[in-house]
């Protein structure tokens, strides 16, 4: 199973196993990870599963759709070039080892 490393804003890390085909958000909430709220449940409607994708991984993710792009403008924490919504990152075997940093706040 692909592994994801979440780095919290305070610096501590969580390594979790994702199931193939689930989103990074689903993997995080299934493991009870703090720092991902996912208020809308993965429908790309709320911007509360915001993550900063580690530089090396950014280009390997699927492209961002317009709705995700628009939602990120309203994320509670600062948007950067590395910002994505984790509900839109579908986990595949190629993403084994993905590193995602969590923002200070989601709302």
């Amino acid at each position: 199973m692909p592994a994801i490393t979440f780095i919290h804003s305070g610096g501590n890390t969580d390594h979790i196993e994702a199931s193939d085909g689930e989103s990074a958000m689903q993997a995080a909430t299934r493991h009870g990870l703090d720092g991902i709220l996912a208020e809308c449940g993965g429908n790309a409607m709320c911007a509360t599963c915001h993550v900063y994708v580690d530089d090396g991984w950014l280009a390997r993710l699927p492209a961002m759709a317009d709705d995700e792009d628009a939602l990120l403008d309203g994320a509670a924490a600062e948007r950067t070039a590395n910002s994505r919504l984790s509900c839109q990152i579908k986990i595949t075997p190629e993403l084994d080892g993905l590193v995602l940093r969590l923002p200070e706040r989601q709302v």
């Binding site: 709320c46 911007a47 709705d67 628009a70 939602l71 403008d73 309203g74 994320a75």
Partner: peptide, 11 residues
């Protein structure tokens, strides 16, 4: 409607 009621507008 999504854009009229977006997170940006909520801020």
């Amino acid at each position: 409607l999504s854009r009229v009621l977006s997170p940006t507008v909520m801020k």
